[in-house]
Design a protein around this nucleic acid. Structure first.
Length: 772
DNA sequence: ACATTCCCAGTTTTT
DNA sequence: CTGGGAATGT
């Protein structure tokens, strides 16, 4: 057995060896957080603590799996066998399965994904005959989610005049009613949504002290990763479980909190010391991942945030390259540049595809990149977006399987009762629903005894027969499930239900791919069965399979071995690292997103997101932005993201802004601005980047007709003509006067006194200034 | 009851 | 431009 401490620096050692009492590890980006966590767990077990008594909560399944593997390789798999490590959602889903009856849920409750939840809300809104323009299902669900994450149950909602008033004054007075109906419907369906997994756990631990005691006693050592992204509901669970032994270790980085939009509360980490007065705090500040340029650039940006804990992330790594900034003419140009650059680096530096990641703010941005990579025959994988299990054909087949496990799952039942079409139309289904409501029964109870209820439903004979046929088929699957494994059953379902047949009728490329997807689902079912059979305590049940995929993220399914460029949103990239990272779409209104510029808090979260993105890079980061971009089928103009301005020219190398022209046109500009630093080396950097790399010329003359505003190069229009004393107009800050100009031409900055915003120092190549 | 067409709204991020 | 949902036609 190796010495666990030999691979660690002093601070890390301290973090690993502090096993008793509350501990907060503030782990800067790339500071070896995962290493500390895994070693700490290994150390605990090494010390003789039974792994049965350890609970480790991670943010993704992938992180959990990787950490488990690393622990196993440190101390051997059998030692760590009983360790509970997983996401909040999966760990507490497991506990809820064991205790569900106490809460009136079946132990095989279904887990609704967001789509399911939205569908339920839609139906509720329709039944209440509310206007979906006012009650937008997604928004309503978001509201409900916020309530749940803050432990506001339906009952406490109606006891809280402030909440009722808030919804009323937001012109949505029925929100509470929808909330009530939604919760009731989920309960009747034996279903929990994502938020329920946490909310119901809280309910379980509060209402049943003996249950709380049981798990408190079991989990004597608790670790929480990514603590900055826990929401109130999660916070309370951890607090309750840890309150007996207080051996709680939380790890996080407030600078990387990027999930406020789904209820994460950064106060949890900021207030840890208040919650546990004897808490130790250990900061991990040495970054082992990135070059100095990257670390310092990231620090510079994040230092603009007001709300944060003091820390000083540093690195002893080499300085590395400056961050190239590519100004693209369009999203396609941007994508071509990225693809060309990847191609070049593969040739010149023998890099592999998997050394690259392209990170973007929104999933929709992947398209252009994909196209460019395909053209150059560079293998890539897109993570996130529409995940495999969210595809219609997959959800359809899964709905059949869900019914078998939990016949009360109304969402699933309604999805398939007439798919593939079998003559059970809306009229029939509505009669069923109304009848079920009147009789106080669930749909499956009606179908189970249809002869009995038939007279009161007002159905015709034809409909009756079709329903009987349908339900008989479902029953036959249920019988099959008792003897056959889930793969066999799923195969039978796909064939007998007619799903496969109806999909095969469609021989368009999309149709063919749908059949392939079904095939792939079958493969994964087969893989699941085999894997579970091999495990000591494997559980090859259908129930278990469905839970796995309900809580799986797209990150989990990747075959790591493949040599592919990774394309993903920044959110998904959290916790990952790549030698070379392209940060694309750095434009105002895209990143930062236009939805997130209303309050300082929102903007600070975007800034943290930028920090996360930049710190994923080990050796080299690139910034790109496009001055025009296709968005919802239209071309829209973009201007450079403020985040580049915030990074500062010190760390960036602007590739392709045509300064030569602006120099020639220079008429009244103070000459000493250029005299300073205009050495040959700098002159070289002033040239536009080699346009052959992008395949598109940078020359303004060849610009596609875009709007006038875009053709007016901000540099030509501003630097050359800009003098101290000029009156200028800025898009965001309004009118102002130029106080001074400084710096070399490609990085000239001006201090401008704005009428309303006061004095600001702006990097001219990014500030879109209009001289008045 | 079902298929086809047409229109519109939406893009922030996810367990 | 896409996908969902309504409207329309058979």
């Amino acid at each position: 057995m190796k010495d666990l401490f030999e691979d660690l620096n002093e601070v890390q050692k301290q973090a690993v060896s502090t096993t008793e009492g509350p501990l907060m590890i503030i782990a800067g980006a790339g500071s070896g957080k995962t290493r500390v966590l895994t070693y700490r767990i290994a150390h605990l077990i090494d010390k003789g603590i039974d792994s049965f008594n350890i609970l480790a909560l991670t943010f993704t399944n992938k992180a959990a799996r990787e950490m488990k593997e690393r622990i196993s390789s440190l101390i051997g798999g059998t030692e760590a066998k009983n360790l509970w490590m997983g996401t909040f959602h999966s760990v507490f889903a497991r506990i809820l399965r064991a205790e569900a009856q106490k809460l009136g849920f079946p132990s095989n409750f279904t887990i609704y994904d967001t789509q399911d939840s939205v569908n339920v809300i839609k139906k509720v809104i329709a039944e209440m005959q509310l206007d979906t323009d006012i009650y937008k299902p997604k928004q309503v669900l978001g509201r409900i989610s916020t309530y749940k994450n803050n432990l506001i149950t339906v009952r406490s909602y109606f006891n809280n005049p402030e909440l009722i008033e808030a919804d009323a004054s937001a012109m949505r007075p029925k929100t509470g009613e929808i909330y009530r109906a939604y919760v009731e419907r989920c309960f009747k369906s034996g279903a929990m949504d994502f938020d329920d997994l946490l909310l119901r756990t809280n309910e379980l631990l509060t209402r049943f002290p003996e249950v709380l005691a049981k798990y408190q006693d079991r989990f004597r050592y608790i670790m929480v990763d990514e603590y900055q992204d826990t929401n109130h509901s999660q916070y309370l669970i951890v607090k309750a479980l840890a309150s007996r032994f207080e051996n709680i270790c939380v790890v996080g980085d407030d600078a990387q909190s990027i999930y406020a939009f789904r209820g994460a509360n950064i106060k949890n980490i900021l207030n840890f010391k208040k919650d546990y007065s004897d808490a130790k705090v250990i900061p991990l500040e040495q970054n082992y991942r990135s070059t100095q340029i990257i670390v310092e650039a990231a620090n510079t940006v994040i230092s603009q945030n007001k709300e944060q804990l003091d820390k000083n992330v540093w690195t002893s790594n080499p300085p590395g390259d400056k961050i190239p900034v590519y100004r693209a003419l369009s999203d396609a140009d941007e994508a071509n540049y990225v693809a060309a650059e990847i191609f070049n680096l593969k040739v010149s530096q023998q890099k592999k595809n998997k050394n690259f990641a392209v990170l973007y703010r929104t999933n929709a941005q992947s398209r252009a990149i994909e196209e460019a990579l395909r053209k150059k025959n560079i293998g890539y994988k897109v993570y996130g977006g529409l995940s495999f299990y969210q595809r219609k054909e997959i959800k359809d087949l899964l709905a059949y399987l869900r019914i078998l496990v939990n016949p009360k799952d109304q969402e699933a039942l309604l999805r398939i009762i007439n798919y593939p079409t079998r003559g059970i139309g809306d009229t029939t289904v509505n009669k069923l629903i109304v009848g079920a409501d009147k009789l106080g029964k669930s749909l499956d109870e009606l179908l189970e005894n249809l002869e009995l209820y038939f007279p009161s439903l007002g159905l015709n004979k034809a409909a009756f027969d079709k329903l009987i046929n349908f339900w008989t088929m479902i029953q036959s699957f249920q019988v099959l499930l008792k003897t056959e494994d889930v793969y066999e059953v799923a195969m039978k379902v796909a064939v007998t239900s007619g799903i496969l047949r109806s999909l095969k009728e469609d021989d368009t490329p999309e149709g063919i791919s749908r059949v392939e997807n079904i095939q792939e689902l079958m493969n994964s079912l087969q893989g699941f069965v085999e894997e579970q059979k091999q495990l000591d305590e494997g559980d090859p049940s259908l129930n278990h399979f469905l839970e796995n995929i309900a809580l799986a993220s797209d990150l989990d399914s990747g075959e790591e071995e493949d040599d592919k460029v990774s394309l993903m949103t920044i959110h998904l990239a959290k916790g990952l690292e790549f030698p070379v990272v392209f940060l694309v779409g750095l434009e105002e209104n895209l990143f930062p997103s236009q939805m997130s510029m209303n309050t300082r808090q929102e903007l600070e979260e975007e800034r943290r997101l930028f920090y996360v993105a930049l710190t994923r890079a080990e050796e080299k980061a690139y910034f790109t932005y496009a001055i025009t971009r296709f968005r919802w089928g239209k071309i829209v103009d973009g201007e450079p993201s403020r985040f580049m301005e915030e990074v500062g020219e010190k760390y960036m190398e602007v590739l392709n802004v045509n300064f030569v022209n602006s120099f020639k046109n220079n008429t009244g500009l103070d000459s000493d601005i250029f005299d300073d630093d205009f050495t040959p080396r700098n002159r070289k950097s002033l040239k536009p980047a080699d346009s052959s790399t992008s395949g598109i010329s940078n020359s303004p003359k060849k610009l596609k007709p875009i709007s006038n505003a875009t053709i007016a190069n901000p540099i030509e229009g501003s630097i050359s003509a800009l003098n101290v004393g000029n009156q200028v107009l800025h898009d965001r800050f309004g009118r102002g006067e130029v106080i001074s100009i400084e710096g070399d031409p490609d990085n000239a900055k001006a201090v401008i006194k704005f009428e309303n915003e006061g004095e600001k120092k702006l990097l001219l190549k990014f500030a879109k200034l209009k001289v008045l």
